[in-house]
């Protein structure tokens, strides 16, 4: 039951952080000035910019009042409009793009965790063996290779033909991205998209070919992201395993007569995974915050893709809202990580 209070207390900490975040984004709004801010609210309907702003409750000579009306806008979802990559209300754009990122992030996390835990256990149980060295090279390369480079290499290797480069044509990508921005993917589907996650929507509509296509489109981005995450957590699991296996309690377990395999799986690994949870949480929050380059290269319509367009065209409301959303994602993943950690490690006092 104590855990419940811990969660509540931990969640309350979010409130002041959130306040800070809104103040920071408001400073951004203030810096952009009236013209750009008004652009999000169909200013052409009004006589001048000041009238358009006044209609939304913004008054650039009164910072405090404007801050509060800005808060009202933020929390009611009245986020103005953007014209690129689609011309729509910012809220609608987020609704369309964000689920795609969630799908990508979850898929990449699951795949990398499924691979990293057994692999890290194997490597960590044999420090300095050839397998360990191979793992080290793999991790290092995962850190060192930029994701966009890897993305292009994967497209060239497995996607459709690019110029004269030979191709395998396994996955539906050409060298310039698979989808045309001018006819966005979400308008062309003959199925309704209640969740905006194509995999699920296709299943709901019972459209297997569409599901298959969505799945194939997902594989290369997920592979690219997985490589990076895997590299990160593999090193942590390995370090945790080596660290834990030098502890006294491992000797105790062996002295009890626990077989070697069980010592590794039950006693060492359980302790080794604790620090990994923290790292994984950070990685997941960065994924959810839109992996800009990967989404851009694959023309994957996620929130990172949206962020690139809003920033490029200086669409103030898009920038403000996305900054706000990234902040919230980071806070929530941190909360979840803390709770999971408290759940896993009984030594955490809550």
């Amino acid at each position: 039951m104590e855990l419940k209070y811990f969660i509540i207390r931990r969640a309350l900490v979010i409130i002041p952080t959130l306040m800070g975040l809104t103040i920071l984004t408001f400073l951004l709004l203030w810096a952009y000035g009236p013209n750009l801010v008004a652009a999000g609210f169909e200013s052409e309907k009004y006589h001048n910019v000041a009238a358009a702003l006044a209609a939304q409750g913004f008054n650039f000579s009164d910072p405090i009042g404007t801050y509060f009306s800005y808060l009202a806008h933020l929390f009611t979802g009245n986020w103005g409009t953007i014209n690129q990559p689609i011309s729509a209300k910012t809220l609608t754009a987020v609704e369309i793009f964000f689920p795609n990122t969630i799908q990508l992030a979850i898929a990449a996390t699951i795949v990398s965790v499924i691979i990293a835990i057994p692999l890290g256990t194997y490597i960590g149980a044999r420090p300095n063996s050839p397998a360990d060295q191979a793992g080290r090279i793999f991790s290092l390369s995962g850190y060192a290779l930029p994701a966009f480079w890897l993305a292009y290499v994967l497209i060239i290797l497995f996607g459709k033909k690019v110029g004269v480069v030979p191709y395998l044509n396994i996955f539906p990508y050409d060298g310039n991205g698979s989808l045309n921005v001018s006819s966005p993917i979400f308008n062309n589907f003959h199925v309704s998209t209640p969740t905006h996650i194509l995999l699920i929507d296709a299943l709901i509509a019972g459209d297997i070919p569409l599901f298959e296509s969505a799945f194939m489109h997902l594989i290369l981005p997920v592979a690219t992201l997985t490589y990076g995450i895997l590299a990160g957590i593999l090193r942590f699991i390995r370090a945790g395993m080596v660290d834990a296996s030098n502890q006294e309690f491992v000797k105790t377990a062996r002295a009890k007569g626990v077989p070697e395999k069980t010592v590794i799986k039950k006693h060492i690994r359980k302790n080794a995974l604790l620090p990994t949870v923290t790292v994984l949480g950070l990685l997941v929050s960065s994924l959810l915050g839109g992996v800009v380059t990967v989404e851009y290269v694959f023309d994957y319509l996620g929130i990172g893709y949206l962020a690139v367009y809003t920033a490029e065209a200086t669409q103030v409301w898009g920038i403000l809202v996305l900054t706000f959303i990234f902040g919230i994602i980071l806070m929530i993943t941190n909360l979840i990580v803390d709770v999971i950690y408290a759940f896993l490690d009984p030594r955490i006092r809550y």
Binding site: H267, N271, D345
Partner: peptide, 10 residues
């Protein structure tokens, strides 16, 4: 060392 000799998460 009894403190170090017991598995802390079990």
């Amino acid at each position: 060392e009894p403190f170090l000799s017991m598995n802390p998460v079990m």
